[in-house]
Nucleic acid binder design. Structure first.
Lengths: 192, 192
DNA sequence: GTCTATATCTAGATAGAC
DNA sequence: GTCTATCTAGATATAGAC
């Protein structure tokens, strides 16, 4: 029985993982169950033994993808300003813009989650909360963490919809510059 | 012939307008041609006399929606800091989060445009460029304008996917605060 | 130009053999 | 648990009457 369960877990993990990549690239709504199954090397009949519906799979994907992002920023050394700046620049890189399947789920999937059911929003909220904690450890301030997150997610999403690479770069570098300024803001009460 | 053309123009405008509201709320992909036609008070057969395909309608909607947003910020008095702050706060309001059909198209439609064809991206790029010009007139700085746009679009999009209103508010107020700080940054070269 | 009716295709989900 | 085959619903797009 142990082998069976192990294999089942592996198959499920592959569905979530490969499905997440597919959804980040094409959108969840544009990912048919046949596509998602094929990405994991199985068929739809098999997929439905792991998830009761497409919505259930979506929730599992949201949870896994957001955890992945949270772990990434949890691994950055908060005491090293260079590492923090590099994390900012990496997020706002053209390679992140060009490879949504390898990147953060927030710029690609968030609007679909906003239109999904409460289970999806619940999973989203928990995942984003964890990301926010990790980012706040890097910025040293909760509000600045929210601002940098919103800024970066918005910038990558907008850049992906721009046609010219020149304009993508203009946007990304402007936002990166502003992000550095936000990070350098002294959050102690100012004297007049 | 003049009457005929006038009516035709009106019908087309209504398709674009009502369709835009529907798409901002449900997503363009989730808006069937029957839905979009019904929102304008016609049927699909009639719709196809105005647009050759769903993609063509999408391009028209993107152009119209982005122009609407650009006009909105073009009407704000750049010389009045209170008006600028109010525009920022209005964008980051809970009512904007709760009513996507009445609001800015960027937080709802951008990822779909990122996956669409070049015609859609071209229309998007032109519209966003115009918005950026209007916002830069308010911020007084091109880079800060990009940053505030990315921040606000990202914040509204993220807030819409959060389940609890409390967390929505936390995010919105944090980003509004950071936006005010970005607006107050002195962009002249600093002396050490 | 607008309607009704429909052709054609693809999606999510299920049945049943192995 | 995985496969093949299929049901059913809904999508885009078109045809033809008025």
């Amino acid at each position: 029985m142990r082998y069976t369960n192990e294999y089942k877990e592996q198959a499920r993990a592959k569905l979530v993982d490969a499905g997440g990549r597919h959804a980040k690239k094409h959108g969840f709504i544009n990912s048919g169950m046949a596509d998602l199954a094929e990405a994991a090397g199985v068929t739809t009949g098999s997929l439905y033994k792991h998830f009761n519906s497409k919505s259930d799979l979506f929730v599992a994907m949201i949870t896994a993808e957001l955890k992945r992002t949270a772990d990434m920023y949890g691994a950055v050394d908060a005491a090293d300003p260079v590492a923090v700046s590099r994390a900012l620049a990496d997020y706002l890189s053209t390679s992140h813009v060009q490879r949504p399947d390898k990147g953060c789920p927030l710029p690609s999937l968030t609007p679909e989650i906003g239109r999904a059911d409460d289970a999806a929003k619940q999973a989203f909220e928990e995942g984003v909360k964890t990301i926010h904690v990790k980012v706040a450890a890097l910025t040293g301030n909760s509000d600045i963490a929210w601002a940098v997150m919103a800024q970066n997610v918005g910038a990558v999403m907008l850049a992906r919809a721009l046609r010219s690479e020149a304009m993508q770069r203009e946007l990304l570098s402007a936002v990166c510059h502003a992000g550095e300024q936000l990070l350098s803001i002294d959050t102690r009460p100012q004297e007049k």
